[in-house]
Each structure stands twice: as C-alpha cells, then as structure tokens.
Amino acid sequence: MPKEVSPERVAAIAAAARIPLPRNGAERIARVVTMPVTRLAAANIALDIEVEPATFVAVQRKDARS
C-alpha cells in the first residue's frame, strides 16, 4: 500500500497521458492527491470480479423499484 504518491509517479502518468506538467507541478500534485490515493488503498476494498461500473445503475434501479 502506498504511504504517499511520489512526484516521479505523477510525472510518469502525466507523460503517458501526454499532459505537460508545469515546473514543480509533479511535487504539488503528488502532495494533493496522496490523501485520496492512500485512503482508497488503505481501505483495501475487495470486490467480486463480476462488479463493474454499471453495477451502480443496477443498484440504483433496484432501490427505486423497492
């Protein structure tokens, strides 16, 4: 589980997305996004392999029918 997001990781993902980072951008972004990334990782959410993004709509509609 990552304890923090590194500027190197930010720079690598941004480069892959062909998004130019401003100077010191990687450091700033790494600082800001560490919270959501580490929080989700720490929760270690285990989902069944059948769960997909559209499962949300199924849950939404099931409750509406109840």
Binding site: R9, I13, A14, I19, L21, V37, I45, L47
Partner: peptide
C-alpha cells in the same frame, strides 16, 4: 492537472466501487 496523478486501475476501482 491533479487528475494526472491517478492510475487507470485506481480510476476503474473507484468506478467499480460505486455500486
């Protein structure tokens, strides 16, 4: 630009967990 920090897997995990 903050969005440039998340991996594809993290994004899809966040979407899958929504339901």
């Amino acid at each position: 630009m903050n969005g440039a920090a998340y991996s594809a897997v993290e994004y899809l995990e966040a979407l899958r967990w929504r339901g």
